[in-house]
Structure formats: structure tokens, C-alpha cells
Amino acid sequence: MRAVKRLWALLLPLGLLAQSVGWRGDYDKARQEACRRGVSMVVVLVKRNCAPCGALLADLARKEELANMLKKRSVPVVVTWENEDYPIEMLYSRTFPTLFILSCEERFLAEPMGGGQAPSGLLRWFEKEASDER
């Protein structure tokens, strides 16, 4: 019984963090939503059983300002490298996780960001995008 409680104690926060951003798991549906809403897609390319990948997703969700920007100003998507249901250019990525910012027409709007630089790079991109809109 204690083991089950400990498992829930570990899994529940991760589930809540994922909900705080609203990550999509279907790339094509996310692309359609981005086109409909007129926003970009923030795509995080992960690999199965990748601890840094889970850490990045948790880090993005924990940073409240960034989580809110992801929800309101983009369509956040997580794709698994093994799935191959995403633009072919991402297939050449050898760093996991890698974050991409794309238009709904699948144009790359920024250079890919490796896990360690992703949160700060994403925040700078959102800030630049907001200043360009003014």
C-alpha cells in the first residue's frame, strides 16, 4: 500500500504540470488548431525513456509565466522521435529534448533549442514576438 501511495505522490505532480500547459500529443491536430487560432506551434521533440525530456516538460510547466504564454499564444505539442509524425527536418535532430517553434504552415520561426537553453530561449522568443506585434 505504501508503494502505491509513493507512486501516486510521484505521478500526480507530473500530471498536474502537464495539464498546466495543455500539451497536445497529435501533431496534425495541433497544426490544424494553430492555423484556426492564428498562433504558432511550440513543438518539443522527445525520445522514449529520456529523463532530460521529462525534466524539460516539467520545467516549462513550473515556470508560470512561460506556461501561460504556451497556453495562450501557441499550441504546445509533444512529439516522440520514434513516432515520425512530424516534419522531416525534425527527424535529423540528435539532441533530446529539442524545442522547435513553427508556423501552422510548418515554417521554422526560430532556430531549434536544445533542452538546457529551451526555457530561456522560448521566453525571449515570446517577448520578441510580442514587441514585434506592437
Rank of each mutant, 00 (worst) to 15 (best):
Y27C: 01
P76D: 03
N49A: 10
P13S: 07
V21D: 06
V78N: 02
E64S: 15
L56Q: 02
T95Q: 14
P97K: 00
D28S: 12
V79Y: 02
A34R: 05
L102W: 11
A34V: 00
P76S: 05
R2F: 11
M90Q: 07
K128W: 12
K47F: 09
Q32K: 13
V39P: 04
C104V: 00
K72V: 05
D26G: 03
R134F: 11
A61D: 04
K5Y: 13
K47L: 11
A9Q: 15
N83M: 09
M41G: 02
D28R: 15
P112A: 09
S131H: 10
L123Y: 09
W81G: 07
G114L: 06
L56F: 04
R107I: 03
G15P: 00
N49G: 09
E82H: 06
E129L: 08
Y27H: 05
L7H: 07
K63Q: 14
S74Q: 05
A3M: 06
M41V: 05
F100Y: 15
M41R: 01
R62K: 15
L57H: 06
E64C: 04
E106G: 05
K128H: 12
D59C: 06
P76F: 02
R94S: 14
A34C: 06
D26W: 02
A34T: 01
A130I: 02
N68S: 14
Q32F: 11
V21P: 08
P52N: 03
R37S: 01
L91R: 15
E64K: 13
L102S: 03
A67G: 07
E133M: 11
G114A: 14
V44M: 00
A9L: 10
F108L: 13
W23F: 13
S120Q: 15
Y86K: 01
T80N: 11
T80D: 10
D59Q: 15
P87Y: 14
S131V: 03
T95H: 14
G25K: 01
R124V: 04
L70R: 02
L123S: 08
G114Y: 13
Y86T: 00
K71W: 08
V44N: 00
A55D: 12
R2D: 12
E106H: 10
P119W: 07
S40Y: 08
V75E: 01
L11Y: 14
V43A: 05
Y27T: 01
L12D: 10
R36Q: 15
M113Q: 08
E64R: 14
G15D: 08
V44P: 00
S20D: 10
L122G: 04
